[in-house]
Amino acid sequence: TFELKGKVGKVVKIAEDHYLVESEGDKWIAYSDEKLSLGDRVMVVDVDGLKLKVKRIP
Rank of each mutant, 00 (worst) to 15 (best):
M43F: 08
G25R: 03
A30R: 00
K10S: 10
V54H: 01
L50P: 09
Y31F: 09
W28D: 01
K7N: 05
P58C: 12
V8L: 14
L4F: 03
S32T: 07
H18K: 11
G39N: 13
E34T: 07
I57D: 14
V54K: 00
L50W: 13
K51P: 02
E22C: 07
H18G: 12
K35W: 09
G6C: 06
L36W: 01
L38M: 08
V12G: 05
K5G: 14
E22I: 07
R41Q: 12
F2A: 15
K53V: 03
V8K: 05
E24C: 12
G9A: 14
V47R: 02
V47H: 04
T1M: 15
P58K: 04
D17L: 12
V54W: 03
I29D: 10
T1R: 15
D17M: 10
V42C: 12
V54G: 01
W28G: 02
K5I: 15
M43R: 02
D48R: 04
K13R: 09
S32L: 02
S23C: 15
D33E: 08
V44M: 02
E3P: 15
K7G: 04
K10G: 09
G9R: 00
D48H: 06
V44K: 00
P58G: 05
V11Y: 00
L52V: 08
S37C: 12
H18I: 10
L52Q: 02
V44N: 02
V42N: 00
A30V: 13
L38T: 07
S32M: 07
A15E: 06
S23A: 15
I57Y: 12
S37W: 07
E3I: 01
D33H: 08
E16K: 10
I14K: 10
E34G: 08
L38F: 11
L4E: 15
G49K: 09
G9Y: 01
S23H: 05
S23Q: 05
A15H: 12
D26V: 07
K27D: 12
D40H: 07
V21G: 01
I57R: 03
V54F: 02
P58T: 06
L36C: 10
V44D: 01
I57E: 14
K35N: 07
L52K: 01
V45T: 10
V8D: 09
D33V: 07
V21R: 01
I14W: 10
G39H: 09
G39M: 09
G49D: 11
D26M: 13
K5L: 15
A15P: 05
V44F: 15
K7S: 14
G9M: 15
F2K: 15
V11R: 00
E22R: 05
I29T: 09
S32E: 01
D33N: 08
T1C: 15
L50D: 09
A30K: 00
G6Y: 01
A30N: 00
L50V: 08
E22Q: 05
I14S: 07
V12S: 07
R41E: 14
K51Q: 10
M43E: 14
D40C: 11
G25L: 05
D48K: 04
K5Q: 14
D48I: 13
K55N: 13
K51C: 14
E34S: 07
D48V: 07
K10I: 07
K55C: 14
D17K: 10
I57V: 10
I57W: 12
L20T: 10
I29G: 11
E3N: 01
K35S: 08
V44Q: 01
F2W: 02
G39Y: 11
V47D: 03
V8Y: 03
S32N: 05
